[in-house]
Write a protein that binds this DNA or RNA. Structure first.
Lengths: 142, 142
DNA sequence: CATAGGCTCTGTAGCGGCTACAGGCTCAAG
DNA sequence: CTTGAGCCTGTAGCCGCTACAGAGCCTATG
């Protein structure tokens, strides 16, 4: 059985969560993680709960939430009551944003694919990619 | 007929290209655009060619090329000889990168969509979005 | 007990790609 | 000549890290 109140150094937390040590300290600086207690020599000492919180942050970041979004989600997770509909709204907004990004990238993709294919064709007098960028009207987003 | 050697202020170029004035000056600072000649009072005076170059930059940026990529494309466009296969390689690499980003975003999208839908369901005891972030194994990219 | 060397500490600066000032100068219209 | 729009430089900020430098801590070995 694990000892009660197990304390982890920042390196141990980093290995557990696969979050860079520098990033962990950065999260503390910008208020995403609380300041942990310190050893006599000044080392940060994390609890397993802290490590879980960091894993939460990592997963939210992997889903593309901004650090502001992560902060908001964390505070919802803390005062758990009534949090679900708010979390849902945040998730939906982020989902919409993600879909917009996908749509933008797809427009870029199709233009690029055409240009590259035209280049590969090799029968045109000038480079289609360069020519398009030189002379064509707006080509993608906005 | 337009006068030979027409000179445009930075504001005129900005309106033509829909590139922010500050951004134009930034591009000059980082070597994406050449330093234009100046009026007696120190105003930048651009040629129509300069404006076209800037439009080129804008379109390449809209396609997602980095400023380094833009610099490379510009130099290919300048010494036009033999540029096409190089431009094509750059375009292909960027296309690959764009497709990777799309794939990443799609993974995020599907996870998010599921979480949000579970929230909307409303029959689960705890908030599925929060619970997933709290406890689940890795969820998306990397 | 000393030392090596791995870990951690703080603070600062850099990345990309802008954007936003402040505080001053120029230029064209009336 | 005055007004006011436009332009100038230089600096600092945004996000989310990442990468140092130069110091101190902690433990395993000889």
């Amino acid at each position: 059985m694990a000892p009660v109140g197990e304390r982890l150094t920042i390196g141990a937390v980093s290995r557990r969560t696969r979050v860079n040590i520098e990033t962990i300290r950065y999260y503390e600086r910008v208020g995403v993680l609380p300041r942990p207690p310190r050893s006599a020599g000044g080392y940060r000492l994390y609890s397993v709960t802290d490590a879980r919180r960091l894993a939460f942050v990592r997963r939210a970041r992997e889903l593309g939430f901004s650090l502001d979004g992560v902060r908001a989600l964390l505070s919802l997770a803390d005062r758990r009551i009534g949090s679900c509909s708010r979390a849902q709204r945040m998730g939906q907004a982020h989902l919409d944003e993600t879909r917009r990004k996908i749509a933008d990238l797809r427009r870029m993709e199709s233009v690029l694919a055409r240009l590259v294919a035209d280049c590969a064709d090799g029968t045109l007098p000038a480079c289609p990619l360069v020519e398009t960028l030189m002379h064509q009207a707006d080509v993608a987003i906005s």
